[in-house]
Amino acid sequence: KVAEEHPDEIWCDSLKLGNLQLVSKLKNPSDSCSVDVSTVWWEGTGSKESRIITACEFTVSLWKSLDNWQWRKVYTWHFTEIPVLQIIPLWDTCNLVCVALGHLEIREIRLLFCSDDDECLKQSLVKSGNIKAVLGLRHKRLVCSNGTLHDHQVDLMTFSGSGRSKEKRTLMSPEETILAFAEVQGMQDALLGTTLMSNIVIWNLKTGQLLKKMQIGNSYQASICHKAYSDMGLLFVVLSHPHGKEIESMGSPIFRLIAINPKTALSVDVRPYSLPQGHTGRFLDGEVKDNLAAAVLTSGTIAVWDLFLGHCTALLLPNSDGNWSFVKWSGTDSCLLAGQKNGSVFVYSY
């Protein structure tokens, strides 16, 4: 009877934490502001294991797993001049990770690794300039777009196993600012991007060709692409709209799934992913992995959606330590890594 009278209230209560279970907490004692978290495969004394990597303003730290979901900080890379903005994981690599450094925009991308000979921490400059978007891809590759309208360039870099050398090739530029890149699940040679002028662009990574530039309408202005899936001749793309206006009839969609026919460049809305009633906020940071999307909202809450089910499956409200400021899916298992500016990272199993 209560559920009938107050369906939204009951649903929200059951949503809090939802499918998430807290398994571990890392506390970075550094005084500086935490900015990002990710996971990386790391090979130490003969065994390959998943480790957590955290970024503060001027340090990046690697955490080794101990027994009972405890973590110990084992390495820290230090940066002196430009602050760290984000971690860029290279998903199927071992002992390699990239970071983006800059103030408001990315100025440098650096590769972090550990020397084989003396196990010393190393870092090397991969790219510098006015970098607009970057993404780590499978097979030790990284794509980034840089420059202004007149000298705009899209570079694809492939690293060697040790990270010491790299091979660079240029992808054809769409001649406008790229806001984000996304890999296409089910089509490993395809790369997708969203642009400032509401276009979705597709490249062939093998040939470097720009295959299509598709207008997706004004309601999608400044969209960020997170993930794309190729199925039955269509591209299904998950977008977020950090600067989007609220559409009353749809509530406040944080993510949106659209279907595009790449042959005709026609697209349709498939599904909005909105917050449950009683919750508000705009997209601040987020990530999509397989069928799960997670976002930190301006309200300081983290929300999780199952893209197949179509609704929010978990809410992490701000805790006594404060608001959430970044969220990532673990690349190596089904864990959610939720971070706060004060250096706390909470690991939730999903």
Binding site: Q209, G233, V268
Partner: peptide, 23 residues
């Protein structure tokens, strides 16, 4: 999603667009 909304669908769109795009 139907062909009336999205136009003719091709399962080989990636190969077809690659052969049509400038090298």
């Amino acid at each position: 999603c139907s062909e009336s909304d999205l136009g003719p669908i091709s399962l080989n769109w990636f190969e077809e667009l690659t052969s049509e795009a400038p090298p």
